[in-house]
């Protein structure tokens, strides 16, 4: 769905993005991670033809960008750096104007599509108030509705849950997961690790303009080969697993063991009370920090 090769952007003497090779596949929920200022937004803008690349190639839905923008972009819904609308007009009028300004927005179905999109983002009760009177969360929802208006095959969203309350964040996450299940590929750029971790299937990490990591999330979160155990009988457990305990913190111990099932049986057999036992997985945070560190070392 998205494929870039050697994508590079210089602003004057500053290199914002360097040699980025994104690979987003059909059906992915792709999490595009990076600290503020790492070049995420510049990359997203290049994908959509807003910023022109210094060098490198971009393919969106198999067509070159920005050359094929007129054919490709009607099939893409986007939210870049927060929503924007004409403040003196109502949300509905804003959507209608935007839909009418470009190709692929059939007039006959417009009113129905606007109703659908507003319903999807939970703004169905919205009245004729001008957008000026909207709360931050409502504007964010309106921006999402604009992206969903033509039922796009690809959604490119930059920080979509910005300004929403926890309830709203959950609704939007559910909406994206549902859309994805119905066949929409989602490209989600964010600096919130937790958000990415909860719904993405694939992750790319940008650090100082370079793509330092790109992989399936479940592959990144593979087990570390250690098992985490919580037990009130720390001393007994330590005695039993002598030599394999790598770390200890209050009632929690980390044990190097290949088979958690066997480990559990051994503990219970020795009358060690076990509160919790699970194979340790790397968190996305560990992975991201590690990748960023390595890229920092290379320089």
């Amino acid at each position: 769905m998205i494929r870039t090769a050697g994508l590079t952007k210089h602003f004057g003497r500053i290199t914002a993005v360097e040699d980025v090779g994104l690979d987003v596949r059909e059906g992915d929920i792709y999490g595009f991670l990076g600290a503020n200022g790492s070049g995420k937004t510049t990359t997203v803008r290049m994908l959509l033809g807003l910023v022109l690349a210094t060098s490198g190639t971009i393919e969106l839905l198999g067509r070159p960008m920005p050359a094929s923008g007129r054919d490709v972009l009607p099939l893409v819904g986007a939210m870049v750096e927060g929503p924007a609308s004409y403040p003196q007009l109502s949300g509905r009028t804003n959507l209608a104007l935007l839909d009418a300004s470009g190709p692929g927005g059939d007039r006959a179905t417009r009113a129905g599509r606007i109703d659908d999109a507003l319903g999807q983002v939970g703004l169905d009760g919205v009245d004729k108030r001008p957008v000026r009177a909207y709360s931050l969360g409502m504007r964010q929802r309106l921006g999402l509705a604009a992206a969903l208006l033509r039922r796009p095959r690809l959604l490119v969203l930059d920080e979509p849950t910005n300004g929403l309350d926890p309830q709203g964040i959950r609704e939007i996450r559910q909406l994206l997961v549902d859309l994805n299940r119905d066949g929409t590929t989602v490209f989600l750029s964010s600096h919130l690790l937790a958000e990415i971790e909860q719904m993405c299937t694939r992750v790319g990490v940008l650090d100082r303009g370079r793509l330092v990591l790109q992989d399936q999330l479940e592959h990144l979160q593979r087990p570390t080969g250690r098992t985490v155990i919580r037990t009130p009988d720390v001393g007994a457990a330590r005695a039993l697993l002598d030599g394999h305990v790598e770390q200890e913190e209050g009632e929690t111990i980390w044990v190097r063991a290949d088979d958690p099932l066997a480990l559990n049986a051994a503990l219970v057999g020795a009358d060690v009370r076990v509160l919790e036992l699970a194979p340790e997985r790397r968190t996305l945070e560990d992975v991201v920090l590690e990748a960023a560190e390595q890229s920092g070392d290379r320089r």
Partner: peptide, 14 residues
């Protein structure tokens, strides 16, 4: 300034 330019261009409007 309003931020609507990027949404027009992405719509896409040539």
């Amino acid at each position: 300034q309003q931020g609507t330019l990027r949404y027009l261009l992405v719509r896409p409007v040539g």
